[in-house]
Computed example of a mutant assay.
Amino acid sequence: MIDTHVHFWNFDPVRDGWISEDMNAIRKDFAPKNLIRVYSELQISGCIAVQASQSEEENEFLLTLAEQNDIIKGIVGWIDLKNPNLTGRLNYWNNFKKIKGWRHVLQAESSEFILDPNFISGIKQLEDYGYTYDLLCYHNQLTDIIKMVDQIPDQPFVLDHCGKPDIKNKDLKAWSENIKTLAQNPNVLCKVSGLLAEADWKNWKETEIFNCFDVIFENFGTKRVMYGSDWPVMLISRPYQDWFYLVNKYVARFSDEEKKLIFSDNAKAFYNI
């Protein structure tokens, strides 16, 4: 089994300002060694390490961790897709085969950024290298994401955290409609990850999470969904095992072959691991 979404960091209160005071559980360092015991317990063989800082130094940091820890099977790094010398930077990073794709924290950006022709042009270059692209956005940005993705039909995309639905306020109508539209693009996959952070951290109900899963699986199907934890961010709500068992409870309705797609095969094919 592959966990397609984890982060590692040496906590810096300035750089990691998004980790607010009420997220005290994750205001500290997180390294691969912190995952080994739980992965062994749950028989998870490895993970995809996803960028948490927007600098090329983050790529170096994750590559160093990957050299030292076999559980890191691939890296989703960061690169400036608007860089006039993007080709040069892509050529450089293409030497490091553990880097499978790229991500920008679009949830912090405006419509103008997401739909900037220079940004879209940058994503279009990724196909030449076989790179994937992780889409990180809030539910209210999905209309812009759809417009952007429609312009790049051959680029492999994956939607992180189901597009961050507004579970806490129980407002899923527009999100559900946009997920249906986005999923009509066969080049877009979805990670079932990160939903605990979008709910009431301590008081969410199983049905609230499963309602979101219903929408995702109805539209993406088992061939375009992959398991992810969003560790350690999800620790603001529950221990790792709670999320893993919650996903397993939901997917119990599927065949063994479909479960293998969700927990392993889709990730291996998408990230080429």
Rank of each mutant, 00 (worst) to 15 (best):
M1D: 06
I2R: 00
H5M: 12
V6G: 02
F8G: 01
W9V: 04
D12W: 06
P13A: 10
V14Q: 12
V14G: 04
V14L: 11
D16L: 14
W18A: 10
I19R: 03
S20F: 14
N24W: 14
R27Y: 09
A31T: 15
P32F: 05
K33G: 04
N34T: 07
N34F: 08
N34M: 11
L35A: 09
I36Y: 12
R37Q: 15
S40W: 11
E41I: 11
L42A: 11
Q43I: 01
I44S: 01
I44C: 03
S45L: 13
C47I: 09
A49K: 01
Q51T: 02
A52I: 11
A52Q: 07
Q54C: 05
S55W: 01
S55Y: 04
E57Y: 10
E57G: 08
N59K: 02
N59T: 02
E60D: 13
E60W: 12
E60Y: 11
F61Q: 00
L62C: 05
L62D: 05
L62E: 03
L65E: 06
L65P: 09
Q68A: 13
N69L: 01
N69W: 02
K73M: 12
G74M: 07
I75W: 01
V76W: 08
W78N: 01
K82M: 14
N85Y: 13
N91A: 10
N91Y: 03
N91I: 10
N94Q: 07
K100E: 04
W102V: 07
H104Q: 13
Q107N: 14
A108M: 09
A108L: 11
L115F: 07
D116N: 13
P117Y: 08
F119V: 10
I120G: 03
Q125T: 05
D128E: 13
G130C: 10
Y131I: 04
Y133I: 08
Y133H: 10
Y133R: 06
D134N: 02
L135M: 07
C137G: 06
H139G: 12
L142G: 08
D144N: 12
I146Q: 09
I146S: 08
I146C: 09
I146D: 10
D150I: 06
Q151S: 11
Q151H: 04
Q155W: 05
V158Q: 05
G163E: 03
G163P: 03
K164S: 13
K173S: 14
K173Y: 11
W175F: 09
S176L: 05
S176V: 07
E177V: 13
T181D: 14
T181N: 14
A183H: 06
Q184S: 15
P186E: 15
L189Y: 15
C190T: 09
V192K: 02
L195V: 01
E198K: 03
D200F: 05
K202G: 10
K202A: 15
K205T: 04
K205E: 14
E206Q: 15
E206C: 02
C212D: 03
F213V: 00
F213E: 01
D214L: 00
D214I: 02
F217T: 02
F220R: 06
T222E: 09
S229L: 02
P232M: 07
M234W: 04
L235S: 00
L235M: 07
I236K: 12
I236A: 10
D242N: 15
W243Q: 03
F244G: 00
Y245I: 01
K249C: 02
R253D: 09
D256F: 09
D256Q: 12
E258C: 02
E258K: 08
K260G: 04
K260Y: 13
I262P: 02
A267T: 11
K268G: 05
A269D: 12
I273P: 04
I273H: 13
